[in-house]
Amino acid sequence: MNEHNHPAADRLEAFVEGTLQDGDRAVLESHLLTCPACQTQVEEWRGLFSALSSLPQFDPSVGFANRVMEHVRIAPRAAWQEWTDRAGALAARIAPKTNYGWSLAVAFLALPILLGGSAIAWLVSKSYITTDALMGYTRDSIIEGLQGVGSTVITFVMQTELTAWVVANIGAVISTAGVTGLGAMLAGAGSLTVLSTWVLYRNLFRSPSRESDYALYSL
């Protein structure tokens, strides 16, 4: 309020614009009830706001779009550009956003390199370890490891109640629905799996940007 106890013009403008805080607004509203001078100013601001918001847009002359298009180069993007865009977007999404995050990521990535490097240095320092022996040992270890994992998984799956139920009921299914029925059931289950995988892929990795997608949506 100024020396005549009227609110400043800026506040009246903010009042009309609707940007005054609730408390200030209430004070001003009660002042306006008894002040014709401020009421007039508010009406003037309202008039200006109304005149400004009714200003028209203008059209350029006919053929504007064609004149622009004469100078536009339309080059379809190569498929690899889309993949590089996606790779870039994925990298931007998973890249650390802070210095602390970068430090942690570098430390995490450096750890196996340091450990692996140390191990290789130790092995190379032993005269009785040859390259052929080392390669053979690595290959055998990998095969053994995979066999171990495979047998563990198969044993685990076979011991579950679901597997036992499926095995126990499979004979019953074949006797009632026949081999064709069993095939139909497997095909149904397979389709559901494919569908769910597609939904996951679509929602997690694929952005809905292809023209054919929009065509489907707009049908």
């Binding site: 350029p60 779009a65 298009m69 339309i74 379809p76 993007r77 292809r210 023209e211």
Partner: peptide
């Protein structure tokens, strides 16, 4: 992706 109609749509939306 190379759609000319898309270019024209953008012009149509923003020319005014």
């Amino acid at each position: 992706d190379g759609s000319e109609r898309a270019y024209r749509e953008l012009i149509g939306r923003y020319q005014r």
